[in-house]
């Protein structure tokens, strides 16, 4: 049999609330061509927006703060002391290895120094530039989410550039800026971000510690 809606592309809209035991469907009529009533949209959105927001991604795979905490073998806060590039011993790639003087270890065994390696750098007359890599500026203060890469035999940042957070000194406050805003906006209340996507250093550290403790079952 054939069934035609009363009005093509102008049919009823539906509010769907997925409940534990089933689905409740509620039809509403369209009253204003081209405009979805915001309150209806809001009702539809609630509880279902998470999936959509995670589809938003970069040419790096999207991670939120919990993803990064879970993936990291080591999370440190520190300052870049020096860096040096070299050819990888088995891959024909240049890596730059930055030595970090650690002031605080948020995950993993406490360490005084840590090394993070990033794709790209200069050796002799050759420079490798990688479109998804991150730069570690000398003297920069950072929060780094690190993991051991058995593929490369190196410590690398989780989620490409997303595992690097720059700590800024601004107006007497320490602020943390991600390389992808979604990373922190998912977990630190939106109102606490400034126009640059920065959040208070203390709030950021507390959220990370809390996520680490959750992961350790404490």
């Amino acid at each position: 049999m054939s069934y035609s809606p009363p009005s093509r592309f102008s049919v009823a809209r539906l509010t769907a609330s997925v409940l534990a035991a089933g689905v409740i469907w509620t039809s509403t009529s369209q009253s204003e061509a081209g405009v979805v009533q915001p309150e209806l949209r809001e009702a539809i959105t609630r509880g279902q927006h998470e999936d959509l927001s995670r589809k938003a991604t970069a040419y790096v795979a999207p991670k939120d703060l919990a993803d990064l905490v879970k993936e990291a073998d080591r999370i440190v806060i520190g300052r870049v002391a020096h860096s040096e590039a070299s050819w990888h011993p088995t891959r024909k790639l240049i890596f730059t290895h930055a030595s970090i003087v650690v002031e605080d270890t948020l995950k993993g065994d406490p360490v005084a120094t840590a090394t993070v390696s990033t794709m790209g750098g200069i050796v002799g007359d050759t420079q490798l530039t990688v479109s998804a890599a991150q730069h570690l500026r000398p003297e920069a203060r950072m929060a780094l989410f690190l993991k051991w890469s058995p593929e490369f035999g190196l410590w690398i940042a989780c989620g490409a550039s997303q595992g690097k957070f720059t700590v800024l000194r601004d107006g007497g406050r320490d602020l943390v800026q991600p390389t992808v805003r979604y990373v922190t906006e998912s977990y630190v209340p939106f109102a606490e971000h400034d126009t640059r996507g920065c959040v208070e250093f203390g709030a950021f550290r507390d959220v990370v510690r809390s996520l680490v403790e959750e992961g350790e079952g404490r």
Binding site: T57, A58, Y59, V60, A61, K63, R91, L93, M119, I122, G124, D125, T126, Q127, L128, T129, V130, S131, A132, A133, S149, E151, F152, I156, A157, C158, G159, A160, Q162, G163
Partner: peptide
């Protein structure tokens, strides 16, 4: 390239240039 799956990006360009 199996190593790229762990690097965290969807795709990337690797550009080798003369530093001079």
């Amino acid at each position: 390239d199996p190593a790229l799956a762990a690097a965290g990006f969807i795709a990337a360009a690797f550009v080798f240039s003369n530093v001079t």
